[in-house]
Amino acid sequence: MTSSDRTERMLEEAFKIRGRDKKGRKILRIVGKFFPARELMSAAQGGGEEVLRSFLERRVFPELAGAPFVVVYMHALVQRSENFPGVTALRSVYEALPAAVRDGLRAVYFVHPGLQARLFFATFGRFLFSAGLYGKLRYVSRLEFLWEHMRRGEVEVPEFVEDHDEELEHRPLMDYGLVESDHHHRALDDPAMDTTASMYSYRCIS
């Protein structure tokens, strides 16, 4: 299997369209841990941008264009050096969406954000993102609150996300950054949100 094939497989795991929320809107589930940021960054000079764009245009955009949808982003176990693209990259992905897709986005459910992530977006969100996207961001601290918007069987939740959710239930101070997880350190809870070492380059998807 070539490196491009592996990256394609990883993108297929990271982006999945399945099920509908309680209002009948399609669900685009994004699992941050599966996003191949390092592979795309290392392939930037050899076509990393094209790989990502091609995948989204072939596998994601056609199923979303012209219809309302929501995004469920699962942040558990995201590592800065492996699969966190960076805030600037996230913004540029949104800005690169075709108009028909962007207009259909109704909400972005950010599952398991930490305190630093909340503070960052509260302080800089309006400056980094368009008002349209920022206003659609919804924090979901526990999976039980996600089920208020969609039924359990409508969105696939990886086992490690459920394990992380259970850990948060037993160690609630993790939500405030006062206690570290035994399993990982979340990228978006680092003091420095974007660095040249961790961020999937803005140029790659702009």
Rank of each mutant, 00 (worst) to 15 (best):
M1A: 14
M1G: 09
M1T: 13
D5H: 13
D5Y: 05
R9S: 07
R9P: 09
M10N: 14
E12R: 14
F15D: 04
I17G: 01
I17T: 10
R18W: 10
R18D: 03
G19V: 09
D21A: 10
D21Q: 13
K22R: 08
G24N: 05
G24Q: 03
G24I: 11
G24Y: 08
K26P: 00
I27A: 08
I27R: 01
I27V: 10
L28E: 00
I30E: 09
G32S: 15
G32E: 12
G32Q: 11
G32L: 11
F35W: 14
R38F: 11
R38H: 10
E39F: 10
L40S: 12
A44M: 05
Q45F: 14
G46H: 01
G47C: 03
G48I: 05
E49I: 11
E50T: 13
V51F: 04
L52W: 09
S54D: 15
F55R: 00
F55K: 04
L56E: 11
E57C: 11
R58P: 08
V60W: 01
F61L: 08
F61R: 03
F61H: 15
A65P: 00
P68R: 06
V70N: 03
V71F: 07
V72R: 03
Y73C: 12
H75R: 15
L77E: 10
V78F: 11
Q79P: 12
V87Q: 10
A89M: 09
L97Q: 02
P98F: 00
A100E: 11
V101G: 02
R102H: 04
R102P: 12
R102C: 02
D103L: 04
D103H: 08
D103F: 05
G104I: 03
G104A: 08
G104H: 01
R106A: 13
Y109V: 04
V111M: 13
H112R: 07
R118E: 05
L119T: 04
F121L: 05
F121C: 06
A122I: 02
T123G: 09
F124Y: 13
F127V: 12
L128A: 10
L128H: 07
L128V: 14
A131Q: 07
G132L: 08
L133R: 06
K136C: 00
K136A: 11
R138A: 01
S141C: 07
R142A: 09
L143V: 13
L143T: 05
E148V: 13
E148F: 00
H149E: 07
M150K: 00
M150V: 11
R152H: 12
R152Q: 10
G153N: 01
V155K: 06
P158N: 08
P158A: 05
P158T: 11
E159W: 09
E162S: 13
E169Q: 12
H170M: 11
R171W: 06
P172G: 06
L173D: 10
L173I: 07
Y176P: 03
Y176F: 03
G177I: 00
V179A: 15
H183C: 13
R186Y: 13
A187G: 02
D190M: 07
P191Y: 02
T195C: 01
T196F: 09
A197T: 05
A197C: 04
S198Y: 00
S201F: 03
Y202Q: 15
R203A: 15
R203W: 10
I205Q: 04
